[in-house]
Amino acid sequence: MRGALVTGASRGIGRATAIALSACGERVAVHYGSRREKAEQTLAALHGDGHVVVGGDLSRPATAQRVVEEAEAGLGGIDVLVNNAGIAPGPGTEHAVDEVDYATWQQRVARMLDVDLRAPANLSYLVARSLIARGAEGVIVNVGSRGAFRGEPTAPAYAAAKAGLHALGQSLAVALAPHGIAVASVAPGFVATERQRDKLAGDAGEDLRAQSPFGRVGTAEEVADAILYLTSPAAQWASGTILDLNGASHLRS
């Protein structure tokens, strides 16, 4: 039985991933940013026991360290890290260059890079160093985005952060393989999570579903299933991969 830290597990892809990992017998640390009650709902949905809840703003390096330490103490060690927490494009985070003023641009770009790139970089470092000190094998899976490849014109920092996250994962895959630590990423397209419900139900919903030739968007469970595979010991040889999960809505060479 391994210990798994899933960031941003209070809802959406993080919650689905935590549930999937627990169904396979893993002990899970459910991380939340600010909504503990949502994390407690995830905790209640997990299979088995030995799970814990940890919280805090991961963009703060000291908080990231505390979260890892609390998760390690609660689980008896972290063998699996899923870097899922992030800020997605939306009304309060978008920063189209031809629409926002310079102060807004700076604030939103800095915040998105801090949460979507610097935080998972710090967590990956902390978990990897702990695994190395223990002499244990492990796995890190990053939740990236198709936006890293196709661009995000209204939220360019999101695309930049996710592209950086993919590159970080590939660099760490090479660096950590001698220690028996695998690192991979998934790159989902649009996913029908709780925070996207209104958008899917509104005028944009039809266009979003039409992006895929399947005529629908993805589900959190589909992404979780892919993460579950990449966290399995059988997937070590997939280290370094970036797995597209977008229903053929964006093809890259």
Results as ranks from 00 to 15, higher is better:
79 D>M: 10
107 Q>W: 08
135 G>M: 09
204 A>R: 14
132 I>D: 01
111 R>T: 07
73 A>V: 05
40 E>Q: 14
27 R>F: 02
223 V>Q: 07
114 D>G: 09
196 Q>Y: 09
215 G>E: 11
144 G>I: 06
222 E>K: 07
146 R>M: 15
252 R>W: 05
23 A>H: 08
219 T>E: 05
144 G>Y: 06
168 L>Q: 06
12 G>L: 08
65 Q>Y: 04
118 R>N: 14
28 V>R: 02
96 A>Q: 09
148 A>Q: 00
16 A>G: 03
111 R>H: 10
52 V>A: 13
177 A>P: 01
108 R>Y: 03
109 V>T: 14
115 V>F: 02
95 H>D: 01
58 L>C: 05
57 D>Q: 11
46 L>G: 13
29 A>N: 05
130 S>K: 11
169 G>D: 04
231 T>M: 07
84 N>K: 04
9 A>E: 03
124 S>E: 06
211 Q>L: 15
191 V>S: 06
151 G>A: 02
130 S>M: 10
175 A>G: 02
95 H>E: 01
116 D>S: 13
20 A>E: 12
100 V>F: 01
181 I>W: 00
76 G>F: 08
66 R>I: 03
237 W>V: 14
71 A>S: 09
212 S>K: 06
97 V>F: 10
233 P>I: 05
242 I>F: 07
81 L>Q: 01
241 T>Y: 02
72 E>A: 12
180 G>K: 04
196 Q>S: 12
123 L>K: 07
238 A>H: 13
102 Y>T: 15
73 A>F: 08
99 E>Q: 15
61 P>H: 11
251 L>S: 11
47 H>Q: 13
150 R>L: 13
45 A>R: 11
111 R>W: 05
241 T>K: 04
236 Q>T: 13
2 R>K: 11
2 R>M: 12
231 T>Y: 03
23 A>I: 02
22 S>C: 08
249 S>E: 10
35 R>S: 14
106 Q>P: 00
87 I>L: 15
125 Y>E: 12
204 A>T: 08
190 F>D: 03
50 G>D: 04
118 R>A: 15
156 P>H: 08
106 Q>R: 15
226 A>Q: 11
250 H>D: 11
179 H>A: 14
30 V>S: 10
203 D>E: 15
56 G>Y: 00
160 A>E: 00
81 L>N: 00
207 D>Q: 14
181 I>Y: 00
86 G>N: 03
23 A>F: 02
120 P>L: 07
173 A>H: 07
136 A>Q: 13
139 V>W: 09
116 D>A: 11
73 A>G: 14
139 V>H: 10
142 N>W: 06
86 G>I: 03
167 A>N: 13
174 V>T: 09
137 E>P: 01
225 D>V: 11
200 L>M: 08
76 G>T: 09
181 I>K: 00
19 I>T: 14
245 L>F: 05
122 N>G: 13
112 M>R: 06
